[in-house]
């Protein structure tokens, strides 16, 4: 039972990070109908930027509680600029091209970012500095530490504020209008290019936060961390119903739970045949299963159109 509870806690914390990244995928998909393949790398860049800034500031003697928000803001700004440029360079010129074209540029962007990051930050793992006294708490036999609590609460708060932005503000209304019908929105005086740019920037800001969270949770950052994370977050977005914000959040949390429970129990389920080293496979099986049995996802209303 303790193990079960522990896996639930780990799954929820990991899942809240997936949800943040999945929101980035789903927002862009909702508006452009395009999978932003490079989104996982934006998360990685966010983590690396935050980590570098943090290490530098701690080196200069800035107090940790000031350095953390400062480096987070820096990472957010950096990722927003990155998200904006990715859209401008790789997607905007191809908005009316065949579907294959932006997908291929997206892969190109992702490879370029990954290798640039490797040149800048090297191949080694970067350790996340110890900032706060990370205390562990016992809940019913399971352990949860301060960082995990902060991640979970912060992720929920960010998601709530995103919902407010999308459903209560003028910008949010413009975003929803563009998602529903680009041409009609344009006729109503919505600046489509601006809305799309802002969407990319919002998604990238979320990615930066998620990047910092992941590296704080595992205590590590690495140039290759974005790929798998991005893939899993995409799975989460599909699981919840791509294009649907609530779906992305639900999908993220669910995927986190599936993964941690699966990794915890796969040994018992298969009689020791498969071990927890297959953890990364779950996301793919979930993805394939969802696409086969319910392509519109759990909360998606639209049926995935053909061709």
């Amino acid at each position: 039972m303790e193990i079960f509870l522990q896996q639930i806690i780990n799954g929820l914390v990991q899942g809240s990070v997936y949800a943040l990244v999945a929101l980035g995928y789903t927002m862009v998909y909702g508006i452009l109908g395009l999978i932003n393949f490079a989104h996982g790398e934006v998360v990685m860049v966010g983590a690396m930027l935050a980590l570098s800034a943090l290490t530098a500031m701690l080196g200069w003697g800035v107090p940790p509680l000031l350095a953390l928000p400062l480096s987070l803001i820096l990472a957010i700004l950096g990722c927003m600029a990155l998200g904006y440029s990715i859209e401008r360079v790789a997607y905007r010129p191809l908005r009316h091209a065949p579907r294959l074209a932006p997908l291929i540029t997206a892969i190109g962007v992702s490879i370029v970012l990954q290798n640039l990051a490797m040149m800048i930050w090297g191949r080694q793992y970067h350790a996340f500095p110890q900032l706060i006294d990370n205390q562990s708490h016992l809940i019913g036999g399971a352990i949860i530490n301060d960082i995990q609590i902060i991640i979970f609460v912060m992720a929920l708060a960010i998601m709530a504020s995103l919902m407010v932005v999308v459903h209560r503000t003028r910008l949010g209304r413009a975003m929803r209008a563009v998602a529903e019908n680009q041409h009609a929105a344009q006729l109503m005086g919505v600046d489509i290019n601006r809305v799309i740019s802002v969407t990319f920037m919002l998604g990238s800001a979320l990615a930066a936060v998620a990047g910092l969270m992941v590296s704080a949770n595992y205590g590590l950052a690495h140039y290759y961390m974005g790929f798998l994370l991005g893939l899993k977050a995409f799975t989460a977005a599909v699981l919840g119903g791509i294009g649907n914000l609530r779906g992305a959040m639900l999908g993220g949390l669910l995927l986190g739970l599936i993964e941690s429970l699966g990794a915890g129990y796969i040994g018992d389920m298969t009689g020791g045949f498969l071990g927890s080293n297959y953890q990364d496979v779950f996301a793919f099986f979930v993805l394939i299963a969802v696409l086969v049995f319910r392509p519109s996802g759990l909360l998606g209303e639209r049926i995935a159109e053909r061709a």
Binding site: A90, L94, I104, T105, V112, N115
Partner: peptide, 13 residues
């Protein structure tokens, strides 16, 4: 790899 990625983008554009 950097060249490959760049080539994919430039070719598509």
């Amino acid at each position: 790899m950097l060249l490959f990625g760049g080539a994919l983008i430039v070719m598509m554009l």
